[in-house]
């Protein structure tokens, strides 16, 4: 199927911080993402409740 997937700047919040990575929830309840710490760019030390922004689109199965 020919879909036009354009990334949108979605805000979200940090739900959990571990020594390995962070878990974030996306605004609009579009899901929860868990990523390693090296995928996060920040000037502050990571804390639960901090607001984040991420470019995201849909997942297309290939």
């Amino acid at each position: 199927m020919d879909c036009e997937l354009t990334p949108k700047l979605l805000p979200g919040k940090i739900l959990e911080v571990t020594d390995l990575g962070v878990k974030v929830t996306l605004k609009g309840r579009m899901g929860i993402i868990q990523v390693p710490l090296r995928s996060v760019i920040t000037d502050k030390s990571l804390q639960v409740g901090q607001e984040i922004r991420v470019y995201l689109s849909y997942i297309q199965v290939v």
Binding site: D2, C3, T6, K8, L10, G28, M30, Y58
Partner: peptide, 8 residues
């Protein structure tokens, strides 16, 4: 709107 723009 912004977040739910049509993909097709």
């Amino acid at each position: 709107a912004y977040q739910g723009q049509l993909v097709v």
